[in-house]
Design a protein around this nucleic acid. Structure first.
Lengths: 115, 115
DNA sequence: TATACTAGTATCTAAAAGCATACTATTGCT
DNA sequence: AGCAATAGTATGCTTTTAGATACTAGTATA
């Protein structure tokens, strides 16, 4: 007996579904920092991500309209990724989270020194 | 050959690990709204969450120091959950996300009407 | 004696997310 | 002819996350 609840329960739920996942936050953050990044560059930035995961994650972000994918029909291939306007709207939030994270990491360090 | 990378790559990664998961954002949001909630109330608020998931999620939030768990030694049992200061610091961010989510949902509705 | 109340546990299963590794296509260059 | 360059695919596997369902403890009250 399966329940199909593909709809978000509320807007918090909705938003978390769009930026959850291991790499999405970081990809958006890098794209904000670098403005435009090619596939290979993203791959290096996200140390050790597999090509499958990178492609998959990028496609999800694209279909959620958070990033743009621009293909140049050249050989060797060239594909550029950048934030959409909607994606850019998430940056303040990611930045907030980043600062919060920094603070917590700092706190943890302090505590480990005490012990 | 396993690589143990339990450490966060960066503060964005760190933060996402603490609030990722299907229910964490909503739990924090509800606790912010209601200030204090008992187990049973949370369970009703998160429609259809299983007790196992709820307990597990609450324990994770607790061990990450985002929520307080206060046990009254009574029968029947009474346990109250509330935000810690650190957890409360995440509220503006979740609120931002919530507003963003609302806007996107609204947009999607508009588009589906067009079709 | 049986039942309700509450905050969980225990056990097993299913689905999702992520990893490892090898492979492809196209063209210019040597 | 063979190789480099780039943006991926393909296949199979492991790990993590989540779901289903049944059960427990201790006391008050009917």
């Amino acid at each position: 007996m399966k329940k199909y609840v593909n709809e978000a329960v509320c807007s918090v739920d909705y938003a978390f579904r769009r930026i959850g996942g291991k790499y999405k936050g970081r990809i958006l953050w890098y794209l904000n920092d670098q403005t435009i990044m090619r596939y290979g560059k993203l791959r290096k930035a996200l140390t050790d991500i597999t090509p499958k995961m990178l492609t998959q994650t990028l496609r999800e972000l694209e279909s959620d309209n958070l990033i743009n994918r621009r293909v140049y029909h050249e050989v060797p291939p060239k594909v550029e990724y950048s934030l959409t306007e909607t994606g850019a709207e998430l940056i303040p939030f990611i930045n907030y989270l980043r600062i919060w994270g920094d603070k917590q990491i700092e706190k943890e360090k302090m505590e480990s020194i005490k012990c």
